[in-house]
Design a protein around this nucleic acid. Structure first.
Lengths: 97, 97
DNA sequence: GCTGCTGGTAAGCGTAGGCTTACCGTAAGT
DNA sequence: ACTTACGGTAAGCCTACGCTTACCAGCAGC
């Protein structure tokens, strides 16, 4: 979650949503240098949101279903909580009126 | 998304997941001062993740179903994308073997 | 009206962290 | 073996931003 706080890092993450890509390719599509992308990928990898595999000379990064799934579960909890609270509030109002 | 990047701010957000609360109450449960909580709530409110209503002297903050729903939709997109990519990768491997 | 409690805002400080440049390792091609 | 392309890492700079203290506004209650 903290890993997706930075806009640039989120851009890298979103780019991987369109399919696996190498570091240089991602850097070419963003207004930052290649080392910056590499550092962002390192953070995303440590957060479990991204996986990398070595293919020849290049290193291909992809979304990690596990990490993204965990993130989804996290957000989902608050989604249901927000709905419950909202529903409860509506009922509360109906009691008053 | 950027709004949930900071751990303390995320703690405030998570606290609201357990139900609506006033600023002072939240600050009492966290190791930061009340103004800090107030600033975090301001950011969360601008991000559409939180709503506030005035009740007497105090200001009660709650989760905003709209914003949380939007966040859920955002994460969900990547969740499906990650699954699709993973499935495609598996099929790719099967072709090779 | 005055007092006490609430919470938002301004000013300022200090650190975390994102970016770049420079360097090094490694794999492929000739 | 040499060269070229790719990418990770170190060092360093600089800005963003989270936190605190101090101040001010508004609502309740005596």
């Amino acid at each position: 979650m903290t890993a997706l706080g930075d806009p640039t890092r989120r851009a890298v993450f979103e780019r991987l949503g369109d399919g696996p890509a190498a570091v240089g390719a991602i850097a070419g599509e963003l207004p930052v240098s290649r080392p910056a992308v590499s550092q962002h990928l390192k953070v995303l990898k440590q957060a479990g949101l991204v996986t990398d595999r070595q293919v020849g000379n290049r290193r291909i990064y992809s979304l990690d279903p596990d990490g993204v799934g965990a993130l989804r579960a996290y957000v989902d909890r608050f989604w249901t909580k927000a709905l419950d609270a909202f529903k409860a509030a509506v009922e509360q109002d109906q009691e008053v009126s």
